[in-house]
Structures are given as structure tokens and as C-alpha cells.
Design a protein around this nucleic acid. Structure first.
Length: 427
RNA sequence: GUGGGCGUAGCUCAGCUGGUAGAGCUCAGGAUUGUGACUCCUGCGGUCGAGGGUUCGAACCCCUUCGUCCACCCCA
């Protein structure tokens, strides 16, 4: 019989990995909290129409990457391919956006049926941040300042660069798109295959083609900048000013466009060069039209998403995970002989009462004393506590430091937790 | 969806022009009756990804298929 294994592109995050994930999540939570962002939790499954109406019918995500299935009552449901749509739906549904401002964040798995490769998986995890009810570029700037702070906190600052652009209003983009298509049609034969295809489907994406010949043709193409409306220009200028004052460095990439239909005005990407082809670690932009498009009252909005797998991969690649982030135990309590077992459990409980911060492993499963000591060593514990027949009779335990040359000592059981301070440090 | 690399023990890998399966690490036991991390000895552990073909004989050659990795497309 064939062995059952995980679905392609859906990874198990194993015990030796989870401490790094927790470290990352902890750091992000701290930063978000410091800016007053509130967590929101949405379902992983939504009505298919929600994504079709928000992301855009002709995008790759909707056309060929969604996990869509029929519910038992015939509704078409979809595993969320991104978080913004669900966040807007939930916020609107519960009145969170009515005449007020909101700073929200969420985390969890997203699903896209793509061919997996480094830093890209079918189930992947994002941390999303969305702000509602604020029109001006100040909130755009805050989001970028916040992410810059996060990179600093993680030690990633030298490895992430920011690219920003303004893609203006929907009308401006329509005008630009028309001009671009007109221009590029003249050179159609010289474009790469993908770009020829995109000429009809998604002309804006030709701008970031990796083909050198295509890029050369683009050098003389109309530029989006010339089509921007006054308000978008003012918004963008002000954003740049705010970033300059805040000391967040960036480059303006006039060819930066985003794949999802709902973006307008500000768009941005944080990119790293240390991850191969999947170098975008954080991306987002403004989407003032989306709330209304989904049936709510017109509400300005801006947000971004971070790819957790990519960021964790980056932290590991660059060796930025602090040594303190491990699954190591602090204390390993051995029990030699039948009568020592209940005593060891009681002793462990007493230690946990006094040191709730310590990781205390009680040996279970019997085995020779030698093998118990071996497990104590493998657990990474700083101290082994030895509890056997001799100690039981004397009412003591032996406390053996495993990571230093300090000698083993005998102490009375009631003093154990206090004595541990010398080896674990105080709380 | 397209292209290429790779699938041998739990992990990392060796295995010559085809001759019947190996090492290191891990794990268990011992040298050391109650002392880990170093050393030495012993042991457990494999449908060589799967199916088919060629051959006296296939881990090795051929075909198919699945998985995985990298890149393209696209995206976080």
C-alpha cells in the first residue's frame, strides 16, 4: 500500500524549527503592539466570490491558483490565497470600519496552487497588516517605518531594501495602459513570449519582465509617471518626504506594479538579494477602492503582507537567529529505581512551582542510570538532578552541572529550587 | 503549466565498464554494578522511490510514473 505523505508544497514545521518561528512571531507581535495594532482572526475558507471580486478575475491567482471546492450545500468555497479580502470582509461585516480608523494585523496559512520552489509553497504563512479609514500618506509612511523597525529588531536591516512607486488612480492606470499597449504593439515581434501574451492579458506586468530585450524596448515606452493625477502625485511626494525625515531609505522604481487589481496610489516591496528568485519578503500598497467594491461604505485603506517562510529562511541563511532561541531544557530530573519515580515527579513539580520560567524535564521510561544521564545531556539541560535510592534515604538529591566544570553537589530536597538559581540565573 | 538536477538505513552520503548492500551520525547494549559530553567493542536498522523492460544476473542500462529541489511563469 502506498505510503501517505504530506500534500505537495505543504510542509510540516518540525520541533527543531518551531523555536525559530516562535522567535519571529514574538518579535513581530512586539513591534506591532508598540504601534497600537490589534490582532484579528478570520476563517481560512471564504466564499469564492470574495476573492474573485477583490483580487481580480483575470489575475493568475484567481484564474489558476485557487483551491476551490464545492460545499455540501453547493456553495463555491475557496481556501484563502491571501488575507486582505477576508480582513475587509470581516471588518465590514462587524462594523469595525464605520466612521472610524483601524490598525489591524493577522497571521496564518494562505493557499496557492503553484509549483513549489525555494521560498514558495502551496500552503504558506503570512503576517498581514491593514489600516482603514486614513486617507493621507502619513499612514503609508507609518507602515514602512514599522517594517523598517521590524527589520532592525531581527537584524535584517542591511539585507532588505525598499522599493516604492505610485500607480495612481484606476483612471490614470487605464490611460497609461492604453498608451503602453499602443507603444508595445509596434514592437510586438521583438518582445519575449510571455510579454506578448501579457500584452492582451495584463500589460502592466510587462514592465517588470526579466527579459533584457523587452526591458530595452521599454526604455522608450511611455512612463506611468506622466499619467498620474495631481492628487496621486502630491500623495506620493508627501510620502517620500515623510520617509526621508524618518530616515527610511528607499528607491523609487517606476516599473514597480503589483499583481492584485485592488491596489492604487502607493505600492511598495521590501526585497532581499539573499534568497534567490523569491526575494520579495514583504509587499503591499494602498487600496482605497476595495471596501466599497465589496459592498461597504467607501473607506481608504492601506496594508501589506510578509511571507513568513521567506523571512525565516532569510534569518537562518544569514545566521541571525540568536543562540538563546533553542528548544533546550534547563533541568533534567532522573529517577533511579521504582521508588524514586514518584519522588522525582514530586520534586519536578516543586521546582516548577518556584521556577515557572524553567524547562524541567522529568525522566520517564526507565532505563539504566547511564542512559538517563545520556538523555539528560541530549536534552541540553544545564543541570541534571539525580534521585536514586541513596538520595531518597538521605532526603537529598545530587545536583550535577552538565555545561560547566563545577562539581556535583548533594543538597536537601527543599533547597533544590533555590540552588538552581546559581546555574540558571535568577528570573 | 514549462524546463533542468536529484531519489540508496531515521539523518548525511559512498557504491568502479552491470556480479547479489556499505560508511559516518543517531538509537540500544557493553568496556565502567549509580554518572552524560571524549575513546573502544557489539547490536538494531534497507521491498536501493514505485511499476515495467533488457540481461544468466540490475541500486547501476532503457521506458513510464511519483516525489523532491532549482529556475521560468506568478507571487509573500
Amino acid at each position: 500500500m502506498a505510503k501517505i505523505q504530506a500534500i505537495r508544497g505543504m510542509n510540516d514545521i518540525l520541533p527543531d524549527q518551531t523555536p525559530v518561528w516562535q522567535f519571529f512571531e514574538r518579535t513581530v507581535r512586539q513591534v506591532l503592539k508598540a504601534y497600537g495594532y490589534q490582532e484579528i482572526r478570520m476563517p481560512i475558507v471564504e466564499l469564492t466570490d470574495l476573492f474573485k471580486r477583490s483580487i481580480g478575475e483575470v489575475t493568475d491567482i484567481v484564474e489558476k491558483e485557487m483551491y476551490t471546492f464545492e460545499d455540501r450545500n453547493g456553495d463555491s468555497l475557496t481556501l484563502r490565497p491571501e488575507g486582505t479580502a477576508g480582513c475587509v470582509r470581516a471588518s465590514e461585516e462587524h462594523g469595525l470600519l464605520f466612521n472610524q480608523t483601524r490598525r489591524l494585523w493577522y497571521t496564518g496559512p494562505m493557499f496557492r496552487h503553484e509549483r513549489p520552489q525555494k521560498g514558495r509553497y502551496r500552503q504558506f504563512h503570512q503576517i498581514g497588516v491593514e489600516c482603514f479609514g486614513m486617507t493621507g500618506p502619513d499612514i503609508d509612511a507609518e507602515l514602512l517605518i514599522l517594517t523598517a523597525r521590524l527589520w532592525s529588531a531581527l537584524g535584517l536591516q542591511p539585507h532588505a531594501r525598499l522599493e516604492i512607486n505610485s500607480i495612481g488612480t484606476a483612471q490614470a492606470r487605464r490611460n497609461f495602459k492604453e498608451a503602453l499597449v499602443n507603444y508595445l504593439t509596434e514592437f510586438k515581434d521583438q518582445l519575449d513570449g510571455d510579454s506578448q501574451r501579457r500584452l492582451a492579458s495584463n500589460p502592466l506586468r510587462i514592465l517588470d519582465s526579466k527579459n533584457a530585450e523587452t526591458q530595452r524596448i521599454l526604455d522608450n515606452a511611455p512612463v506611468l509617471d506622466d499619467f498620474l493625477d495631481d492628487e496621486s502625485i502630491a500623495h506620493f511626494d508627501r510620502l517620500r518626504q515623510l520617509l526621508d525625515v524618518a530616515g527610511v531609505s528607499y528607491t523609487v522604481n517606476p516599473r514597480l506594479v503589483r499583481g492584485l487589481d485592488y491596489y492604487g496610489k502607493t505600492v511598495f516591496e521590501w526585497i532581499t538579494d539573499s534568497l534567490g528568485a523569491q526575494g520579495t519578503i514583504c509587499a503591499g500598497g494602498r487600496y482605497d477602492g476595495l471596501v466599497e467594491q465589496l459592498g461597504g461604505k467607501s473607506t481608504p485603506a492601506v496594508g501589506f503582507a510578509m511571507g513568513m517562510e521567506r523571512l525565516i529562511l532569510l534569518l537562518e541563511t544569514l545566521n541571525l537567529v540568536p543562540d538563546s532561541v533553542t528548544g533546550d531544557a534547563d533541568v533534567y530530573v532522573t529517577a533511579m529505581g521504582e521508588t524514586a519515580v514518584p519522588a522525582a515527579m514530586a520534586l519536578s513539580e516543586a521546582i516548577r512551582n518556584e521556577r515557572p520560567d524553567a524547562v524541567v524535564i522529568t525522566h520517564c521510561g526507565g532505563g539504566s542510570f547511564k542512559s538517563q544521564m545520556k538523555k539528560a545531556d541530549r536534552s541540553g539541560a544545564k543541570v541534571a538532578i539525580i534521585l536514586g535510592e541513596n538520595e531518597l534515604e538521605a532526603g537529598t538529591v545530587a545536583l550535577k552541572p552538565l555545561r560547566s566544570d563545577q562539581p556535583q553537589i548533594d543538597i536537601v530536597q527543599s533547597q533544590v529550587a533555590a540552588a538552581l538559581t546559581d546555574y540558571l540565573g535568577s528570573r
